[in-house]
Amino acid sequence: MQYFMQLLISGLAIGAIYGLIAMGFAVIYKSTGLVNFAQGEMTMITAYIAWTISTTVSGNVVVVALGAILAAVVLGLIIERVVMRPMLGEPVFATVMVTIGLAVILRSSINFIWDAYPHGLDVGFGRSIVRVGPIGVRTGQIAVIVTLLVLLAAIWAFFRYSKIGVAMRAVAADDRTALLMGISATRVHALAWAASSVIAGIGGVFFALSYDLSPAMFQLGLKAFPATILGGLDAVLGSGVGGLLIGITENLAGGYLGSGMKEVAGFAMIIVVLMIRPFGIFGERDIERV
């Protein structure tokens, strides 16, 4: 039972990171209709920038957090303006392939800007262990779960009540009508890229806090795919929950069935979900009959 609880807690923690990145996928899909294959790479770059800030400027938690968020916003905006906006109106296949090209470029740039060795992000927080009964939990793990829950609530409120949130939902539902209503689609897209970059970037920084930074971190993006498919590509909140489910499944599969299963549990789940319910648990059903 203790083994099970331990797996469950660490599954929740890694699942919260997947959830954050999956929300990044969903925010972009919801407002632009494309899957951003460079999400994992953007996450990784934000985490590396946070690490650079912590080693060169200051190791203070607040400074690192604000710097990372700012960097993520700038990164998202640059990518949207330079790479994605010229592709506006092109077929989905072309734009998605552009994000794949972008992913490959960002992934290799890590080795040129930083280096190929693993690093630990140390901000004097997150590595100490709290005991809850017989189970040891790292503070970083608690923090990421709390962050996910807070962000879920904040994003729900944002889409429900704020004017920009409503505009984003309008563009997602029908971009032409939204344009006729005077909503600037490009501005909404830019905002979506920035927001997605920040949300996923937070996940990346938490990953670096609990584990290590390395050029293989982009695989987080691949691991978060199952989460967003499970939750529904167009469901931002659903993707967050999907992340938790995938994290738990993966950890339980790894703990009871062997480490090989841990790597593929998520992907096996993708195939099952796509066969049974392609639009995900919380996604909107898109009916088309042939």
């Binding site: 199952p226 590509l233 593929v264 096996a268 993708i270 066969m275 392609p278």
Partner: peptide, 24 residues
């Protein structure tokens, strides 16, 4: 087999998942 139900992006993701599963 999934491709009979899926199109575009979803199929791309399924095949991506397949390539990781086959390695394992």
């Amino acid at each position: 087999a999934p491709s009979l139900r899926l199109k575009g992006l979803y199929l791309a993701i399924t095949t991506l998942a397949f390539s990781f599963i086959i390695n394992t």
